[in-house]
Every structure is written in structure tokens, then in C-alpha cells.
């Protein structure tokens, strides 16, 4: 009797199948100002097309393909597929297989997306602001998506702006 009730309850959950949106999905996070500073640099030029073109060149150097570009809004989006296998995960899967847990899916491929937006600097009429964001989708060996995330490691942003600064022959300043 109880079993039937529980089963019915679980199945009803499946039928209802409407996921709830996280409450903070459209709310600015408390760290959004710091995130913006991490993701942005100031360049002493008003020619934003030059910055975008330099950005495209840097992305090509790193093997990205441009998915979208709009010079009048200063938007450039690019992506690349890459390997996502990690030694630690393989070791874990081997260990699981050894103790008889069967084959465990491990991360195999990833798609990295990067978006560069160049805007006028509202607080200074002599410079422009470039802002980038990175995202990643990871697929495992069974072809399922195992992770979707925004990359927040400061060294990635630092590294990109160093390249952009060399490519545009302009110095990147913190905002």
C-alpha cells in the first residue's frame, strides 16, 4: 500500500515536469561589481573597431571561430571545441572499475565560448572599455552534458587581456 503510494508520488513528479528557476538567475549577485572589474579593462582609444579587430585576431590565434560579430554594438562572440579529459578523472574511473563499479563516464570534450564586448567609457571620454566572459559546456564519454558553467579564474581574464593588449598595441588598464 505504502509502496504504491510512494511510486505514484514519484511518477507524478515526472508528469508535473516543470522545473523551477533559481531565484537568483536574474538578480545581480553581490559580487557582480567585482566580476565586472575582473572581466573588464580600459584601453586608451576611441576606435572601438580596432579593439574588436584585435580581439578577433587574438581569438583566431587561439583557434576560436567567430560565431557572431556586430561592430555597431561592439559585440564579438567566438567558440572552440577542445579536449576535456583530466588525469584525475581517469584515475577515479579506473579505481571504480577495479573495485567492480563498472565503467564510469568521464569528461571527454568541451566547448569553450568567449564573448568580447567593447563599449565607450562613460566616466572618461578618452578611452574604451573591453569586457570578456568565458563559458564552458563539458560532455562526458557517453555524450551527455556533464557540466555547464561560467569560468571565473582571474588568470584566464588576465591572460586574455595581455594578448589583446599586445595585438592592439595598447596598454590594458584596470578599471
Amino acid at each position: 500500500m505504502k509502496k504504491a503510494f510512494y511510486l505514484c508520488f514519484i511518477l507524478l513528479f515526472l508528469v508535473a515536469c516543470s522545473p523551477t528557476i533559481p531565484k537568483d538567475a536574474f538578480v545581480l549577485s553581490p559580487t557582480s561589481l567585482e566580476d565586472r572589474q575582473l572581466q573588464s579593462r580600459k584601453f586608451a582609444t576611441l576606435d572601438r573597431t580596432v579593439l574588436l579587430a584585435a580581439g578577433a585576431a587574438v581569438l583566431q590565434d587561439m583557434g576560436y571561430a567567430i560565431d557572431e560579430s556586430n561592430a555597431s554594438l561592439g559585440v564579438l562572440t567566438a567558440s572552440k571545441q577542445a579536449d576535456a579529459t583530466s588525469g584525475a578523472q581517469i584515475a577515479g574511473a579506473v579505481l571504480v572499475a577495479l573495485i567492480g563499479g563498472g565503467s564510469m563516464p568521464i569528461d571527454k570534450e568541451q566547448k569553450i565560448r568567449i564573448c568580447l564586448v567593447v563599449n565607450e567609457n562613460l566616466s572618461d571620454s578618452e578611452s574604451s572599455i573591453a569586457r570578456i566572459t568565458f563559458q564552458r559546456i563539458v560532455w562526458n564519454t557517453q555524450g551527455q552534458i556533464s557540466r555547464v558553467e561560467t569560468l571565473k579564474e582571474p588568470e584566464l581574464y588576465q591572460g586574455f587581456f595581455e594578448k589583446l593588449s599586445k595585438s592592439a598595441f595598447l596598454e590594458a588598464h584596470q578599471i
Binding site: P22, A25, F26, V27, L28, S29, S32, D35, R36, Q39, D67, E68, N70, S72, L73, V75, T77, R113, I114, C115, V117, R131, T133, Q135, R136, I137, R147, V148, E149, T150
Partner: peptide, 25 residues
């Protein structure tokens, strides 16, 4: 961008912007 989205498409003539957020969802 502040909300963690990446711009997929932007068209200034028609006035549309499409973006994706990945954060576990």
C-alpha cells in the same frame, strides 16, 4: 553580461539581442 550571460547574437538594425547563461543550468 552582469547577470552572467554570453551574447549569442546582436542586431542593431532590428534591435534584438540573444544571450545564454550557463551556471549548472
Amino acid at each position: 553580461q552582469d547577470l552572467g550571460f554570453i551574447i549569442d547574437k546582436a542586431d542593431s538594425d532590428i534591435g534584438t539581442v540573444t544571450a545564454t547563461k550557463l551556471s549548472g543550468y
